[in-house]
C-alpha cells in the first residue's frame, strides 16, 4: 500500500439541508466557577454524517467545545455552562453521561492505547455491555480494525500489546477502539499532531471515510488539514465563534476580517 502521497479529498460534500446531529445554541461555558469565560454565546450546527473541523489559535475554546459534546468537561472541576446543547434533539446535559459517551466516541491528541493486547483494547468497550462469544469478539476486531486501516498490519498478531505499536499504528488502534462501541459521533482532538507525515495522511483519509457513516468533529491547528478533510469549518477566536460554513466558502471567501487574517497567517 503506497502511503507516501499527501491525501487530498476529491470533493467536499454539501452541508446544506443536512440533518443536524449536534445543535449548539447560545452556549456559554466558564472555568474556575465562573472566573474565566472560555466559550461565549456559541451558535453552531454540526451536520450529520459529515466531517466538521474546528480551527483557531491555541486557547480559543475549540477543544473546550469539543469536550462538552461527550461531557468530558464533567471531569474538570469548576465548569459552569449555560445555553442549549443538543445531541439528536436531546439535551446533552440531561442525558446519562456514560450512555452519551458510548454514542459519542473520542480520539485524543496523543495515542493512548491501554496496557493490554490489541484485541483486549478493541473489546474493552463492547465487553462491558454483555459477554461476547469468541466469534463476536473476532468479528468486532476485524470490522473496527479494517475501518481504522490497521487490520492488514496486525491481523496475525492481535495478542501483541497495544503499547508495542508505533505512534501512527497506536492512533489507528485508538480509532478502532472508539469505533468498537458503535458510536454515531466521533470527536477527534488534534488526532494527528503527534504523528509523522505518513501516519497523518492515513488518519486524514480515515476521517473522510469515517464521515460517510459517522459524524466526525475534528479539532485541528493545521488549516491545510481542515481543507483536506472537513466539509464544514468553524473558526474560533478567544472563546467566540467568528465564522462557520462550508469549508470551501470559509477558506476561499471568508466573510469576517478576523478569519481572513488568521487564514492568511497574520496571527496564529
Amino acid at each position: 500500500m503506497s502511503q507516501d502521497r499527501v491525501f487530498e479529498q476529491s470533493e467536499h460534500r454539501s452541508v446544506q439541508g443536512v440533518e443536524t446531529e449536534i445543535e449548539v445554541k447560545d452556549f456559554d461555558l466558564w472555568y474556575d466557577n465562573g472566573g474565566f469565560q472560555a466559550l461565549k454565546h456559541i451558535n453552531l450546527d454540526i451536520p450529520k454524517s459529515r466531517c466538521t473541523a474546528f480551527i483557531g489559535p491555541s486557547g480559543c475554546g475549540k477543544t473546550t467545545l469539543l469536550r462538552t459534546f461527550n461531557r468530558m468537561c464533567d471531569f474538570t472541576e469548576g465548569v459552569k455552562t449555560e445555553g442549549t446543547l443538543k445531541f439528536e434533539g436531546q439535551q446533552i446535559f440531561e442525558m446519562d453521561a456514560n450512555a452519551l459517551r458510548v454514542r459519542v466516541g473520542m480520539v485524543f491528541q496523543h495515542p493512548n492505547p491501554f496496557p493490554m493486547s490489541i484485541r483486549d483494547n478493541i473489546l474493552y468497550g463492547p465487553a462491558r455491555m454483555g459477554k461476547l462469544s469468541k466469534e463476536e469478539g473476532d468479528e468486532i476486531c476485524e470490522r473496527t480494525l479494517t475501518e481504522a486501516a490497521l487490520w492488514d498490519e496486525v491481523k496475525d498478531n492481535l495478542a501483541k500489546s497495544g503499547l508495542a505499536l508505533s505512534g501512527g499504528q497506536a492512533q489507528r488502534l485508538c480509532i478502532a477502539r472508539a469505533l468498537a462501541t458503535e458510536p454515531e459521533v466521533l470527536l477527534m482532538d488534534e488526532p494527528t499532531s503527534a504523528l509523522d507525515p505518513i501516519s497523518t495522511s492515513i488518519v486524514e483519509q480515515l476521517m473522510v471515510e469515517l464521515a460517510q457513516e459517522h459524524t466526525v468533529v475534528v479539532v485541528t491547528h493545521n488549516m491545510q488539514q481542515a481543507t483536506r478533510v472537513a466539509d464544514k469549518t468553524a473558526f474560533f477566536y478567544r472563546g467566540n465563534l467568528i465564522e462557520s460554513g462550508p469549508t470551501v466558502e470559509v477558506f476561499s471567501n471568508p466573510k469576517e476580517q478576523r478569519t481572513q487574517e488568521y487564514l492568511s497567517g497574520r496571527f496564529s
Binding site: 461527550n70 485524543f108 493512548n112 462491558r128
Partner: peptide, 27 residues
C-alpha cells in the same frame, strides 16, 4: 498512570469505578 489512559476509558462511557478496576489498577 498517564492521565490520557484515564481519559480514554472515561470517554468510552466507562464509570470511574470501571476505569479504576480495569485500567488504573492493572496499570
Amino acid at each position: 498512570v498517564p492521565r490520557s489512559q484515564r481519559d480514554a476509558s472515561l470517554a468510552m462511557g466507562l464509570t470511574r469505578w470501571e476505569t479504576t478496576t480495569k485500567i488504573l489498577l492493572p496499570a
